[in-house]
Amino acid sequence: MAETKGYDLTGKGGIQAWSSLPEGTKLTLLNGAVGEIIANPHDGGWVLIKFQEHPHDPSKVGQEEYVFFNEVQTAAG
């Protein structure tokens, strides 16, 4: 079983970590939604995720959406 790696998105190192997050990384957003990164433009601001869980809007599960870095609570992959 593959070991889950947590990413520290805080501080100076967090900016670099965010820009380099690989596809497949699981993000938990501040609103409780969970999604998996399907593309990272490496612009330092955004990643494209596909929602796996969404506590406030279940219709978003399976949909793709760009997520800004300050909307994210944790990243693990």
Partner: peptide, 25 residues
């Protein structure tokens, strides 16, 4: 993948659609 404005992070996909704005949520 997208065209990200470095000013306030308004971001457009390759069809020109606005797909994100900084602090949008």
């Amino acid at each position: 993948l997208v065209f990200t404005c470095p000013f306030h992070a308004w971001t457009y996909d390759t069809a020109g659609k606005l797909v994100g704005v900084g602090y949008g949520n």
